[in-house]
Nucleic acid binder design. Structure first.
Length: 276
DNA sequence: AACACGTCCTGAGCGC
DNA sequence: TGCGCTCAGGACGTGT
């Protein structure tokens, strides 16, 4: 399930592979739950050169030269992946959409569970972001994202701290895997209410969110099951996960059994002894 | 406003 | 072997 490190890894790869290519046409291989207007995309982007690929939260935004008010926005959902390969190579069974470039290569969007999407979006200005992303919170790796800012936001919030840090209007990019990992590293019980954390605890949570995301980016993200890089490779950070998916196994810090609980409808992993 | 919960979707894993 | 069931979850919508 792609979170910030996985989307960042894909964005970096696409900046190497896609920038400078000239768009030819778009095709929707399956329209089901993929709000992708292939004909309009072709009409508005044919002949345009890819200028850059950006990441905002878990969204990818492909910008084109001389197309200042329109861009392509992609969300990988849970099982989405992108590949760049020659158009004459056989497509995969879960390929949903493709962008053909003038050089004969295609960007292919594959998504088994169809939670992802790829859509043409209007931008308010060059380098702007679509209005749909207005409600997103700060990027966790920005300097201005601090424990103090979270402590202020958390005042009066009764929801579980894990649910709170996964709220994309609070901070973006933190999903189920890295939320569990960061709270374990910070020693904070994920079931506690957001309002109950001290300023020091928020400092630790923010520090560990930044640390785990940075380390995961360096490892090319985590492949639990479906995630793949643009070249088809798996991430390497799953080997370094300390708590996510480890129910019943010993905590790497104290050896206690790792426990699991559902918070906000998501599996949550924690150590009763290390996280208080 | 905040929060709980339902919805979308299908492959993997499991019990029988 | 194969069937049917449950689980996985990011974003969004709805009801309270």
């Amino acid at each position: 399930m792609p979170e910030l490190p996985e989307v960042e890894t894909v964005a970096k790869a696409l900046n190497r592979d896609l920038v400078g290519r000239i768009m030819d046409s778009a095709s929707a291989i399956s329209k089901l739950r993929l709000p992708f207007e292939a004909d309009e995309t072709t009409a508005r982007l044919r002949g345009r050169r890819v200028r850059s690929v950006r990441r905002r939260a878990k969204y990818l935004i492909v910008d084109f030269e001389d197309a200042d008010c329109v861009a392509l926005m992609i969300h990988l959902g849970m099982t989405g992946s992108l590949r760049v390969e020659a158009a004459d190579i056989a497509r995969h069974p879960h390929d949903r959409a493709a962008l053909l470039f003038a050089d004969g290569d295609e960007l292919r969007f594959s998504d088994a569970r169809r939670f992802g999407f790829m859509q043409l979006i209007d931008l308010p200005c060059r380098d702007g972001l679509p209005a749909a992303l207005d409600k997103l919170g700060p990027e966790p790796l920005e300097r201005r994202f601090t424990g103090d800012t979270l402590a202020v936001r958390a005042a009066g919030r009764s929801c579980a701290v894990k649910v709170f840090v996964m709220d994309q209007s609070v901070v973006v990019g933190v999903g189920n895997i890295y939320a569990s990992e960061a709270l374990h590293a910070a020693g904070v019980d994920p079931r506690r209410s957001a309002a109950s954390l001290s300023a020091e605890e928020w400092g630790a949570v923010v520090r560990e969110i930044k640390a785990v995301l940075r380390r995961a980016i360096k490892s090319g993200g985590s492949t639990i099951r479906d995630y793949r890089g643009v070249d088809g490779s798996e991430g390497r950070f799953q080997r370094e996960l300390r708590i996510y998916g480890k129910a019943g196994k010993p905590c790497p810090v104290c050896g206690s059994d790792i426990e699991t609980v559902r918070l906000g409808g998501r599996s949550t992993f924690y150590c009763r002894r290390c996280q208080t």
